[in-house]
Every structure is written in structure tokens, then in C-alpha cells.
Amino acid sequence: MLRTPVNTIRLSSRRALSGSRIVANKETIETPSKLASTSSLPKIEQNLLKKSPRQPSKKSPFLSSNVIESDPNYKMAGWMQQIGQTVIRVFNIDMDASRSGPVAGSKYYGECKKQSLYYPNEPLSDSARFYYETLGLPQSFSQWFQITTLHYWILTVRMRAMPFKYGKNYQQKLVDRFFKDMELRMAEELGINSNRIIEGYLKEYHSQLLGCVLSYDEGLQTDDITLAAALWRNVFNGDPNADMRHIEALLGHVRQQLYVLNKMSDRQFGFGDFEFVPPNEVVTPLTKAQEAELAAAVKKSYEGKTLPSQRSSLSLDE
């Protein structure tokens, strides 16, 4: 079923949530959640070789206390919008560069952050349940970091395909917000009061992020076996008892995201029109006719975006 350009090529939620099977190109496809849950192997808890991880003692704002980020229904006053549009037009501001902050540093970082975000005594989101209950990963800040890093990498794969000037800017805004948020969460939620200790953790996490990106890039450039090994080392913490069906499910989940991103134009992605496909949905390949239909629908949706703040040199064709 072809959905709107924003949701692109997902199946309807009813079919996906039921974990029902479909046939595409004579292959049976299941949702990642359904595939992982079919394993009959006994669950063996990971040996973290350390004390129980420190859990959040309080809950900080999801992104920030800024009203534009904290309130999805916020709308700037008309006179403020007019002033802003005039400034953009008079000074010929490059909106593709300016847009990278709110899109990559806010919208896309929020997409990464929420995938496995959890708080004690609060119900898990569907995506977080996939990681902590279906895949059996431990609930800890370090585990959240690994899952968020995976989603960060998925987005940077697409960002690196944008024109270099803008792709680099989007990547920088995303990683800057990632580490700024971790710093605040360690201080506010985990109660770490020493700046020196926080800085030490941030350096260690930065090294881990670089290693993850390198290993995932290698998998992307080679084969699924290499990418699955990278997922096992990082997301599954190299657990010798990891369930291979779970690794396979996560690999399929990652491939789904990459496929959707590959079918999005630079402008779509640059305007923040991407959302991660939930693990209880499945993506099916588009036919040539569906691709043409989708491209036409996307172009039509952008026809009315003519304000100075909506100008863009990013392509709608690639």
C-alpha cells in the first residue's frame, strides 16, 4: 500500500501490527518485531561484568524547554513571521544551510533519541519495547547510546549523499546536539555532578561513536554478514549468547530505513520529512510505476512552498 510521501512505502498499520505475512517477489516478508519474536531459544541475560547500571532519577525535557521544540503545535505570531520572511528575502539567506539546525539538530535528533528512550516505572514506547523486551537488551544509558548511535549513523548515510556543503552541515548539527543532550542528561537525570567525569564519559562515547560508524560503513559497503557482525558487536555488546534471529531482525530493520531514505529526494530529506519506520511495520520494494507516482506526489506537495523561508536549491529528483 502506497502512503503519503512523508511515510513513503510502509504497509498499512493494521497489517503491520498484526505481523501478517505478505508475498513480494515470491519472498515471505515479516516485520522485524514478528521475526524476532518467532525465536524459540531460551533467553539468557547479558553478563555486563559490572554493577547494575545507574538509572535516571528524574526526567528532563525531551529536547529542550524552548517552546518551538517542546510544543509541536506552536505557531509564531504573524508579525514575527512577516519580519522573518523580510529579513530572509532582503539578505538572501541560504535557507538550506539555516534549516540544518532545526531539522538535523532538533527534528532528526529527536527521532534518534526516542527510539529506545526509557524511564523507570514508565511504559515503553513500541520501538523501545522492540529493543528492551523483544531483543532482550539491557536498559541502561550506554545501551540507549548504542541504539541512538545506530540511528544517527542511518541518518548520516543519507546526509553524506546530499550536496557536500549541506550534508556536512546537517551531520555537524546532528552530532553536536547528540553530545550536548548526553551531557545534560548525565548531569540532570543520572545525577553526575563532576564536569571532569562527564567530560571523560563524553570522550569515551565519542570514540565509541567513531568506531560504530566505521564498522557500520564497512558493513554497508560489503555485505549483510559484515553489517550483522557490526550490529552484534555494538548494539548486542558482543554477547556470545545473542540470539541470531534477533540480530537478523535488527539487520532487516536497519535495511528498511536505508531503503526508505534511498527513495527520498534531497529536498524531502532536507526539509525533515523522514521518520523511522517502526519495527512492527514492513517495507516492500517499490515498482517503477510506484516510484514515478511517488515522485509526482512529492513534487506536487512542494508546489505551494514559495515563501522566502521555504526556498531551497536541494533537488526534488535525487
Rank of each mutant, 00 (worst) to 15 (best):
S70D: 10
A292C: 01
Q268P: 04
D239E: 09
L11C: 09
M76F: 01
I88S: 01
P285E: 12
M159K: 07
R10A: 05
T148W: 00
R267T: 05
R185Q: 13
Q290D: 13
E293N: 05
K26Q: 13
P42D: 00
F236D: 02
L258T: 12
T226E: 06
E45W: 04
L214D: 14
K263D: 11
K299V: 00
Q290S: 05
S207H: 08
G270R: 08
I225H: 14
K168C: 03
N280F: 14
T284N: 09
G84A: 05
V298P: 03
R245C: 07
A249D: 06
M95C: 02
R21F: 02
E281K: 15
D223T: 07
T306W: 00
P42Q: 01
F269V: 02
L250T: 11
E27N: 12
M186S: 09
V298I: 12
P123Q: 04
D126S: 11
E218L: 09
R15K: 11
E281F: 15
D126Y: 05
V213T: 14
K288Y: 01
R185Y: 10
F271W: 13
V283M: 09
E204M: 03
D317H: 04
G191V: 00
Y109I: 11
V157Q: 15
K113E: 13
K75C: 07
I198G: 04
D71N: 15
I83Q: 02
L174M: 03
M162I: 02
V175D: 06
N280Q: 15
A36E: 00
H151D: 02
Y118E: 03
Y170W: 04
I198W: 02
K180I: 06
F271Y: 14
D273K: 11
A249W: 05
I88T: 01
E281R: 15
V103Y: 06
R54N: 13
V103D: 06
Y108P: 01
S140H: 10
Q172N: 14
F269D: 03
K165M: 04
T222M: 08
F178L: 06
N169C: 03
E291K: 13
L135D: 09
K168T: 14
L227K: 09
P163E: 06
D273N: 14
Q310N: 08
R10Y: 00
S142P: 00
L251H: 08
K26I: 05
N234G: 01
P56L: 05
V23W: 03
K43C: 01
K26T: 10
M159Y: 14
I93L: 15
N237C: 02
Q257S: 12
E133G: 02
T134V: 13
S12A: 13
K34R: 14
E183R: 13
Y302G: 07
G167I: 07
N237A: 03
T284Y: 14
D217P: 00
E133F: 00
Y302M: 12
S57T: 09
L150M: 06
S18N: 07
R89N: 15
E111W: 04
I68V: 15
M95T: 12
S12L: 14
W153V: 06
M80D: 14
Y302K: 08
I247E: 03
Q256K: 13
L135H: 10
I198A: 04
S12Q: 13
P56C: 04
T4I: 04
N262P: 01
I9K: 12
L261T: 13
V103T: 13
N73L: 04
T226I: 07
W79P: 01
A297N: 10
G219E: 07
Q55K: 08
K43G: 01
R129F: 06
S20K: 09
Y109S: 07
G105S: 12
G105C: 10
Q221N: 14
